[in-house]
Simulated assay, not measured.
Amino acid sequence: MQPNQRRGRPASLMVFLTLALLLGLLAAYVGVMHAIVDVSRIGGNHDANERDAAYSYLHLVFLAGSAAIGFGAGKWLNGLGIAFGTLFVIVVAVGMLAVQLSSYSLACHGHNDIVRHWQCD
């Protein structure tokens, strides 16, 4: 009796699809952050609690969405849904951090309001 071996997709397809999905998620993150930049303005229509809630929900939705998309892609590509879900969450979380840190650095050099409004000292 042969064990049930699942045949995965070609490696080139796995790499291409993984990179395309990750880049798409990060581009969507930057786009949504840019779209709600008015929420982060101090003295605007939103108080601190609303700003914190908006950013908390946005980041949680993106991390949960990246886990679900990664799981689905991994399950379809080669049956490794949890591994791909974990990979997607880690890469998207690091990408979120990189976007925030780079936008802060740019804001302190005169290019504010790219993904949020920063106040530099």
Rank of each mutant, 00 (worst) to 15 (best):
G43A: 11
Y55V: 05
L23V: 10
H117W: 06
A67V: 05
G72I: 02
P10D: 12
A67M: 09
S56W: 10
A64T: 08
H109I: 04
L97Q: 11
G24D: 06
A11W: 13
S56E: 06
L21P: 00
A83V: 12
R9S: 14
A64Y: 04
L101P: 04
I114W: 02
R9F: 14
L13N: 14
D47W: 15
L87V: 12
T86W: 13
L17R: 09
S66L: 02
L21T: 13
L63D: 04
R41N: 09
F62E: 01
G72F: 06
M96N: 01
Q100H: 08
L60T: 06
G95S: 01
M96H: 04
L23T: 10
D47H: 14
Q119L: 12
L80W: 12
H117M: 11
L22K: 05
G79L: 07
A83C: 10
D38C: 04
G65T: 00
D121Q: 10
H111I: 08
G85N: 07
G43D: 09
D121A: 11
Q100D: 12
T18I: 05
A11H: 11
H109S: 15
A20N: 03
L26I: 01
H34L: 01
G72M: 03
G85F: 06
G72C: 03
Y57L: 14
T18L: 01
G79R: 02
S12C: 07
G44S: 15
R116D: 06
A27I: 09
A28S: 10
A28R: 06
M96E: 05
R51N: 11
S56T: 15
C120G: 02
G95Y: 00
L21R: 00
L19V: 09
W76R: 06
C120K: 02
V94D: 03
E50H: 13
R9P: 07
T18H: 02
N4F: 08
P3C: 09
I114M: 05
R116P: 00
D52C: 14
F71L: 11
G81C: 07
A53D: 11
L26H: 03
V30P: 00
R7H: 15
K75T: 11
V89S: 01
M1W: 11
A28W: 03
F16Q: 13
